[in-house]
Design a protein around this nucleic acid. Sequence first.
RNA 1: UGGGGUGUCGCCAAGCGGCAAGGCACCAGGUUUUGAUCCUGGCAUUCGGAGGUUCGAAUCCUCCCACCCCAGCCA
Length: 558
Amino acid sequence: METPNASNFLETIIAEDLAAGRVQTVVTRFPPEPNGYLHIGHAKSISVNFGLAETFGGRCNLRFDDTNPEKESQEYIDSIQEDVRWLGYNWDGEVRFASSYFQQLYDWAVYLVEQGHAYVCDLNAEQAREYRGTLTEPGRNSPFRDRSVQENLDLLARMKAGEFAEGAKVLRAKIDMASPNMNLRDPILYRIRKVPHHQTGDSWVIYPTYDFAHGQEDAIEGITHSVCTLEFEDHRPLYDWFIEHLPVTARPRQYEFGRLNPSYTITSKRKLKQLVDDGVVAGWDDPRMPTIAGMRRRGFTPAAIRRFCKMIGTTRSDGVVDVAMLEFAIREDLNENAPRAMCVLDPLKVVLTDYPQDKVEELLAARHPSRTELGERIVPFTRELYIDADDFREEANKKYKRLVLGKRVRLRNAYVIEAVDVVKDAAGKVLEVHARTIPDTLGTDPADGIKPKGVIQWVSASLGKRATVRLYDRLFNHESPDKGDRDFMAHINPDSLRVVEQAWVEPALVRALPEQGFQFEREGYFVADRYDHSEQAPVFNRTIGLRDSWAEQGGAGE
RNA sequence: UGGGGUGUCGCCAAGCGGCAAGGCACCAGGUUUUGAUCCUGGCAUUCGGAGGUUCGAAUCCUCCCACCCCAGCCA
């Protein structure tokens, strides 16, 4: 068998395990807790886990790590499955739930008690913290640590039966209160929570902790490589301890990689939830959110997200990835695949005084500049048009390549025109531009040799359609909005959303399907809103602007 | 001041003792009916620092420094 070309440390490990015969088939899992929507950081984890299975011809499970019913809900379970599928991944078999292993987990807890490896502790949370010691001082043994097996068995059964109040008792592993690794100072296995569970209803009043559940879930499912993020590294000795002390039939191994931290972004479910709850954004799927659902609504494609995840690599170092890389990924995809169209965001009327009043020419325009197979669309040309106010100036220096009074410009996919006059209001504001069309300039330069310097987009004033365009920008104006103890709420970008209620788009655009993406030439990439767009009331979201070296040079400021 | 990690170009990242890949960003040209795309070229005598081993070190050894994670009955 050919050894796959290892391109990251996990692939190297797996390739060696396969080569050494330690595992026959690679089985990984993506194990989200259903307590929030998936975000870009999860996309990386999904890419890593499903990607590993794919690379080595193995399997990847989707398992909900639902051991804490208080924070979880069906809404999250549904959204997570939808997001994973949307990203283009298929999990092996049915969706799994940690909760479906509750009985097995409980039986193993009983086993540990029988072996003298676990005990019921009556310390309350505060006392437990005191007994635990600190990072530099060892903890002290709980006064309940030496209860008899018989008493522990009885107490555990009564915990399960609901005889005790929440917080009154916990089940703990008997390991080492002096361990320098805090996770080994008699960790808690079960706590009492008298709340119904979204999957198991009220059949349980005690729930296993992450530490007692995760590795065993992996063992039950035959996971060979349990991949998680760096902060769980200290938990690995405990993960291994349970596997070694329990009669499990498989031997999963945990490996950790560095989580994704994109700049100008937060990826904490708690904080994202706060943005939603405080109304800073319209919901988990607000296009400004770094959630999968939000990015989807923003116009990102699964391919671009997957590409980005591959691009950033998988390592054990933990840093901040420039969002510019994510932006590159979506631009690359959309540049290649999005049909072109014309949209005017800040309309300024242009009247072609030499063009017949009722004449309409149905011009043909390529859907894509290089992919001719995408065909053409019809764009109506009329006497009155809209161009962007920013594309006209009464006077300008030679660096300005748009329409200037007395000068020419190419109307994209149409004629070259020359501005001959302006109409202003009392305050001197330009209301409309009068221009003339240069004859025979469709698809060719002017016969007189005076070539226009630039090209601008336009929309027929009489046949174009009105549309709502939402211009999104990054949600935070700080590169690391929540690093350290920074208050991320103080770094919200107040201009993260600008709604243009009366943009003009070429008529064909109103028939766009929801979620269809376009490049509005010279503006950026846009998508018909997944929920709000309709032919009668078109709504487009800006996914990302075009690269703009003109603006970068300060051109916009001239 | 305990334990566990990580340090290669502004950012991500290859490299695993033989003479510093690649991508993003940036800069300079060229093409262009999108100031986009595309194309070309530039961008680490140096790998957190200091010693040491070696003919040879980003790669091995020693010490030091910086940053991240851990004291939830969260995951």
